[in-house]
Design a protein around this nucleic acid. Structure first.
Lengths: 144, 144
DNA sequence: TAAAAGTCTACTACTTTTATAGACCATGTA
DNA sequence: TACATGGTCTATAAAAGTAGTAGACTTTTA
């Protein structure tokens, strides 16, 4: 399940993508436009900034904007930053692998095997769909 | 993320699949064999029973077994029973749809659009892979 | 130097997850 | 019919994660 945090983060990213060429966007404007609690949004934007996805400037005339053009930012990046690994089971994660303590043998674990497929399918979609792609309904992987 | 509950449930189901023709399996045996806390496992098995996936008999000589042959039980069933809908966002779920309160227009929501693809890809794997398939590494959908 | 705007730390409320305890009910068999 | 075996059910609790708030602080520009 996508947390509210990740959902808000994605909404913010799309908003910033739409305003990419209009100078920095204020947290307050973003919060109001997308119905996101302002204080909560602060945290989210800060996290995204620390991971290099967003850039911001303090002081008068400041605000947030994307650090790269929207066609270079993939949804997977944003979701991983805010919600952690995409994988449904940690032993299957590429970015945050952790072994299951009760697992007798990873090579024969049925759950791991299937969940790896799920992870791969998910990552394939989220890591190849940029903000721009999503806005224009260009999904590079067919869903069925 | 798959919860421990769902992971334990899947482990139990695989164990029962392997013992499908050997009469009922005791909770205690299952708990011990798969390193699952026994009392927690009771709840999990009961939930699976209420959803018709397992069958059990009380009293001496009793225990749990699958209510259908293992090639007729799909992983999606088990995961949905224990963890709820597969969809990462409720507005995209087929089995438990809920509208997002802050959503202005579902038809143009970028998040919804992409997450629907993710859901479909996940469901396609989990709803076509039976216990038997998973045990024999027969995954009907290629992951890449 | 004042106003605008982001930064940071700490905290709280709430929910979900992961269990545990213990009384209770059903079944088979001696 | 008594008793041991084994599942059922309700209640509760610890721990962790999620969502959100408060307020003091820093940076920038005019």
């Amino acid at each position: 399940m996508l947390s509210h945090k990740a959902k808000y983060g994605l909404k913010a990213a799309f908003y910033l993508a739409k305003h990419y060429n209009n100078g920095p966007v204020l947290i307050s404007d973003l919060a109001q436009a997308e119905y996101i609690p302002k204080k909560f949004l602060e945290h989210i934007l800060l996290e995204l900034k620390k991971h290099g996805i967003l850039y911001s400037r303090m002081g008068k005339g400041g605000g947030y904007h994307l650090s790269k053009p929207p066609d270079k930012i993939y949804l997977g990046e944003i979701i991983r930053t805010l919600d952690g690994p995409l994988a449904a089971v940690p032993c299957v994660s590429k970015t945050a692998y952790v072994r299951c303590i009760e697992c007798k043998d990873e090579r024969t674990c049925e759950i791991r095997r299937v969940m790896k497929h799920v992870r791969d399918a998910t990552a394939k979609i989220l890591d190849t769909t940029s903000l721009t792609d999503a806005m224009h309904a260009k999904l590079k992987v067919s869903s069925l």
